[in-house]
Amino acid sequence: MVFFYILEHTMVPIFLLVLIGFYLDKKFSLDVKTLSKLLFYLIIPSFVFTNLYKTDFPATSAIIISCIFFLMFIGFLVATFISKMRHYDACMLESCRNALMFNNSGNLGVALVILVFSHDPFVVNGQTPYLAEAMVVQILIFVIQNITLNTIGLYQAGRGRLSARDTLGVVFRMPIIYVFTAALVARFSGWDATQFFFWPIMEMSGAALLPVAMISIGIQLHRTTIKWLDHEVWLTSIVKLMLFPFLGLATIYAANLIIPGSFSPVASIVFLIYCSVPVAVNTAMYAIEFNNCPEYATQVVMNTTALSAFTMTFFIFLGHLLFI
């Protein structure tokens, strides 16, 4: 049931959006650069601000954040190792780093958490008492991933083609850093940002993240020569979908061993889901924006998204066995 539910309610809609983008570009030759600018300067900042402002994070947030950064660092090291073994150039190195460091925790992650904690054994008397805790942890993961993706990931994508100075200049021209600061100031100053006239615009813009991002991927796919047997794409996909969930499990057990209670059973399953979801869609968008191996980045996103329908189901089942 879970397997087919994931396919029907998560994978099919996402791939339909990709197909829509593919068809629209074939029919009208759309400008993918314009869509990427819309994402970077309006949609992503709106999503980050509204989520960061509204979410009340758990007491163990610092530990969970440390574990997220730890796995990102491992992704950085693994990508560097693969690059040396496969003799990647700077473009491929940075694209591989982004692929292994950043996950699709916003789109697939949220959908999976809602799915898992809205069904047995997490349903009690027709209610979903564990869903709120799960969503708080999921939003925490998403916020950290989104901030780092839109700073570190953006830097790495630009670094493949630009100098360090030029890349930093691009990063600081992006609004995400200032939006993050503004959300923290609004949150801790006591100002009610929901009464600000721009709040409805940010909510509506943030809700457009998934469709605009996936349609943009579809446009890029239409312009990309797909190599289904590309060894580099498959190597990155296998490492991402099989190695990192097990690293996530090891991180959960290590954290609970060092500081008991770091991960509750609910938080453990949410963290495992985070480790098992595919590559973040925005890594391909950044590759398109900076012309940083866009074909490789796009194919890794699509490959891991397709394969994750099978791998995620396995790790969700494993999480039930280990933590319930």
Rank of each mutant, 00 (worst) to 15 (best):
P200W: 08
F198E: 04
S308G: 04
T224K: 09
E295H: 12
F323P: 07
A182T: 10
T304F: 01
M242R: 07
A59S: 14
V233P: 07
I43K: 08
M302W: 05
K240S: 09
I63L: 04
A309N: 05
T298C: 14
A250G: 15
V301D: 06
S83G: 15
A59I: 02
I6L: 11
F49I: 12
L52S: 14
S262Y: 09
D31C: 03
L16K: 03
I324K: 12
Q299L: 12
M92R: 05
P260R: 15
N104A: 08
A254E: 15
S105N: 11
Q299A: 11
E203V: 15
A297F: 13
D166F: 02
L131F: 03
V212Y: 00
L30G: 12
G319D: 02
T236Y: 01
F244A: 06
Y274R: 00
L243Q: 02
F310D: 08
I238D: 00
N125E: 09
M135Y: 03
N150V: 10
T194D: 07
C293Q: 12
V32G: 01
I219V: 09
L318F: 02
A254R: 10
L209V: 15
N51G: 03
Q145N: 14
G248M: 06
V171P: 11
P265Q: 13
T224H: 08
M214V: 06
C275W: 01
F40Q: 14
L221S: 06
V32A: 15
